[in-house]
Design a protein around this nucleic acid. Sequence first.
DNA 1: ATTGACCTTAAAGTTAACTTTAAGGTTATG
DNA 2: CATAACCTTAAAGTTAACTTTAAGGTCAAT
Lengths: 133, 133
Amino acid sequence: MKTFNIGELSAQSGVASHAIRFYERENLMPDPARTQSNYRRYPEDAIARLQFIIHAKQWGFTLEEIRELLMLQDANGDRAEAKRIASEQLEKIRHQIQSLSRIEAVLSKTLEECSGEGPMDGCPIVEAIAQER
Amino acid sequence: MKTFNIGELSAQSGVASHAIRFYERENLMPDPARTQSNYRRYPEDAIARLQFIIHAKQWGFTLEEIRELLMLQDANGDRAEAKRIASEQLEKIRHQIQSLSRIEAVLSKTLEECSGEGPMDGCPIVEAIAQER
DNA sequence: ATTGACCTTAAAGTTAACTTTAAGGTTATG
DNA sequence: CATAACCTTAAAGTTAACTTTAAGGTCAAT
């Protein structure tokens, strides 16, 4: 089995060495084996674990939530817990979409109304923001 | 004309006194008049300015962008500039919506596939995150 | 044997947008 | 006149998720 030092793992995973050490301190990555000279030695599956972290981040999970998911995996925990975490994430995402969509509607309408010419005084954009709600 | 000290302005606007001073340092609020005892004295329109800031924040503008908009207003600058700033903001919001919608689709589909029962091993949620793309 | 590219740790810096703390002056009330 | 509730400034702390710096040990190549 191939093993990697931290620089090689960094190159394979696209995660900076310092970030990998940070994940270790934050208990997202397990303490790796060490060489005689105290260098970290990673097994191949460390790449997959880092990619899991990257993807979960892209999905909007916080490191805290990712740590929970990884701990469930490591402990072969309860699937219901993972579902709860992911469901909460889905709810958050849906709220964000709703909120952004409302803003998008008003902002795009406002931009259509603004010619983009003339002085600031009476600018529909400014007036839309200044509007009480 | 009524004037306010910072605590009254805070109560009227819903923005904490310290945040108001912070906005002053950050050039979002103009340096106010002072009493003999060096207390800040605000005119009524300070309330509207703070509300403009609050609303712009709700629309997702950064303080930096809000400062730009306020400077344009204060200088009675060019409406085209305001339109550019708002257009960029609209683009950002649309990208966020797109990105979140993609995540929402995959995540909700994954959640449907996961019974929420049994051990983590083989959990569709974990597998969906671990998936290469 | 020396250079350069790695690796180690611990600690401090980054960003945004504040909040909190510290140490003290002022004003209103009983 | 004392006490509480204001106000002042400057500086440090907060959060997330790292990055950067400092000071030094190790390894591969020339």
